[in-house]
């Protein structure tokens, strides 16, 4: 009798666990267009050298128009110190590729809560003529209302001559792999 009760209890418990978490359907996606990326950042090589320093190679490429006034900066978790200095580039023409080598040494401190990482960031002035031309493309963006929203956003950024800020982050435990 006692065994039967325990069995019943276990079945009820299992059933309860099965239905304990049910998720309701999330809402569908609100349609919105996206603008193409202006800049491609790719880590082409990563490894720790014989001195225990992290070496990274990052490839920069313009993917939309002529980017100008580029400022390349670095951040890292506190267990790493980036030895490479901030770089600037007057412009990055369509199709042209630049490679930057980054060297980081260990500081002896503990990594961050999310791990050990190096961030390579680029602030730049995008090619607003190219962006506005792209946003006006009725073939690429056929919905007139949504295209207009995109165009207004591009024009607003252009009026302010707003600089874009993109980055790539590399987690040191992946050294040796490509991202």
């Amino acid at each position: 009798m006692k065994t039967q009760s325990s069995g019943l209890f276990l079945i009820i418990l299992l059933l309860t666990m099965v239905v304990a978490t049910m998720s309701a359907r999330a809402a569908g996606n609100q349609f919105s267009y996206q603008l193409p990326a202006n800049l491609s950042l790719l880590i082409s090589d990563s490894h720790f050298d014989s001195n225990g320093k992290l070496q990274l190679s990052v490839i920069l490429q313009s993917t939309l128009g002529n980017l100008s006034d580029l400022e390349i900066y670095f951040d890292s978790s506190k267990d790493l110190k980036v030895l490479t200095n901030l770089r600037t580039l007057k412009n990055l023409k369509p199709g042209s590729v630049r490679k930057i080598r980054i060297l980081a040494s260990k500081t002896g401190q503990q990594p961050d809560e999310i791990g050990s990482w190096v961030k390579v960031g680029v602030k730049y002035l995008p090619d607003y003529d190219a962006i506005v031309a792209m946003a006006s493309d009725a073939e690429k963006y056929p919905d007139q209302f949504e295209r207009q929203k995109l165009l207004e956003l591009a024009q607003s950024n252009a009026q302010k001559e707003a600089r874009y800020s993109d980055a790539i982050r590399f987690f040191a435990d992946q050294a040796g792999s490509k991202k």
Partner: peptide
Amino acid sequence: VNCIGYGPG
């Protein structure tokens, strides 16, 4: 992800 390419916007 719904704002990719929007820059500061």
